[in-house]
Amino acid sequence: MEWTLEVVTVPVSDLDQAKSFYEDNCGFKVDTDTRITDDTRIIQLTPPGSRCSIALIAGMPPAPGQHEMEPGSLQGLQLCVTDIHTAHAELSDRGVEVSNVQHLGANGWEDGSGDTWNSFMFFRDPDGNGWVVQQAPAPLADR
């Protein structure tokens, strides 16, 4: 049996602001924007080329045994790209405040690209949810 990660819920305070950020600034595709009731709304967006989406949700209680996350409390969501400098320019051009490209060196985070798998940049959404972008080689089938 395969277990695929398909959707990650991102806690936000303003659905319209978050939708605009992820769609307009990050280039995510809006898969659905559905109102279930006057108070319940689900927006699902997918990064270009990804099978995993994010969900922005209002008015839905947490699943049994779980608790509601505070807006901005999700950290470390990671996207992978094959060209971090092109991705950096794209996000910057779209108005996203993104860190310099960095790599992990002997003294911690250092500016500039690193070796394979060791080039990163970081950004936050309007609520402070933290994203990591890592450069990764193209899948073998694409090389």
Rank of each mutant, 00 (worst) to 15 (best):
M69P: 06
N118V: 07
C26F: 12
S119W: 04
Q44E: 15
P126C: 08
G108N: 09
R94V: 01
P71A: 11
A136I: 06
V7C: 11
T32A: 15
E6I: 04
N100Y: 13
C80A: 15
G128K: 09
D16L: 08
E110T: 14
H103L: 07
A89T: 13
V30T: 14
W117P: 00
V133I: 15
G108V: 11
R124H: 06
A87L: 05
D38R: 13
R35W: 11
T32F: 14
A55K: 06
T34Q: 12
S20A: 14
Q78H: 03
E23Y: 07
P139M: 09
A89M: 06
G49Y: 10
G108K: 05
P61H: 10
F28R: 05
I36E: 12
M60E: 14
N25R: 10
N107P: 00
G112F: 08
D24E: 14
I57F: 03
D115C: 11
P126S: 09
T46Y: 02
W117A: 02
Q17N: 07
W131G: 05
C80F: 08
F21K: 02
T86M: 12
G65H: 13
P139H: 12
D83K: 08
P47S: 09
I84S: 09
E70I: 02
T37S: 15
E2H: 14
T32S: 13
T40V: 15
T40L: 12
E70Y: 02
D127T: 05
A138K: 13
D14N: 14
S99M: 06
P71C: 09
L45E: 04
L74E: 04
E70M: 03
V132T: 11
W131I: 09
L15T: 10
A55M: 14
M1I: 14
L15E: 04
I57M: 13
M60N: 08
F122V: 00
V12T: 09
G59Y: 04
G130L: 04
D31K: 05
K29W: 01
S92N: 11
G108M: 12
L104G: 04
Y22N: 05
G112N: 09
S13L: 03
T82Q: 12
A138L: 12
C80S: 13
M1R: 11
R124V: 00
G59K: 03
S53I: 01
F123G: 10
I43M: 03
E70S: 08
Q17M: 06
